[in-house]
């Protein structure tokens, strides 16, 4: 799906400035809600704000590093084997990230569990490599991946914030809602993640619909 969107936009995208590459991932193509890519981590590790944030940052790092790497070697890779080559590059960077997390922040690494290696199969990364980095120079690729990654992190933080405050009554583990608050247990269960995701996608649809109808009037 993302691929066809990208192809349609390509002619004008080539003439766009660097700042546009950065900004478009933040709202226009915000990853988990608009493109509906990378849903697995967006739903699985957002039961607390801290987990959502660290997953977002890990994905951001892998995304930027792999987009930079692919953009540098893009002319050396034969088109027939490009997907396999990308996957190996991503898997290598993810291994580095995973070992780093295990060494520096064992608690977070344990909480994220197998979802760190699963960044390899996050469709956002392969999607950006295929749609952007393989045909653009290094600098635009970095901006593009940075924007997409920050947008993705923002999505995870939004999910984690709502789920933690409704599910535990806390933020970053500090209780902020008092004894009067009855936690919504369902928000920390898988079902709550799906329900919230549905609600947030509808909200993004609503806001962008409102924006576009305002734009037509003006």
């Amino acid at each position: 799906m993302a691929d066809s969107v990208e192809k349609a936009q390509l002619p004008e995208e080539e003439t766009q400035s660097l700042s546009y590459e950065l900004v478009k991932g933040l709202w226009q193509d915000i990853a988990p809600f608009r493109l509906v890519l990378g849903l697995c981590p967006a739903l699985a590790v957002t039961n607390s704000l801290l987990n959502g944030l660290s997953m977002g940052l890990a994905t951001l790092f892998v995304l930027v590093a792999s987009c930079t790497a692919v953009s540098i070697v893009r002319k050396l890779i034969a088109p027939q084997v490009r997907i396999a080559a990308y996957v190996v590059i991503i898997a290598t960077i993810v291994t580095v990230t995973d070992l780093f997390l295990q060494a520096m922040t064992p608690g977070i690494s344990k909480a994220l569990g197998p979802y760190v290696p699963l960044i390899i199969t996050n469709c956002i990364i392969l999607g950006r490599l295929e749609a952007f980095s393989q045909k653009n120079p290094v600098l635009p690729s970095i901006m593009d991946s940075l924007g997409t990654g920050i947008g993705f992190t923002f999505g995870l933080v939004a999910m984690g914030f709502v789920r933690e405050i409704l599910g535990f009554g806390s933020i970053f583990g500090f209780t902020i809602l008092g004894d009067w608050f009855t936690p919504w247990i369902v928000m920390i269960l898988p079902a709550g993640a799906f329900l919230l995701m549905g609600g947030l996608i509808a909200l993004v649809n609503y806001i962008s619909h409102k924006q576009s109808s305002q734009g037509e009037e003006a």
């Binding site: 509906v36 079902a191 709550g192 993640a193 799906f194 329900l195 995701m197 549905g198 609600g199 996608i201 509808a202 649809n205």
Partner: peptide, 10 residues
């Protein structure tokens, strides 16, 4: 997609 997610939640 939104309704699909909510159905999946149920």
């Amino acid at each position: 997609i939104a309704i699909t997610m909510i159905v999946a939640g149920m």
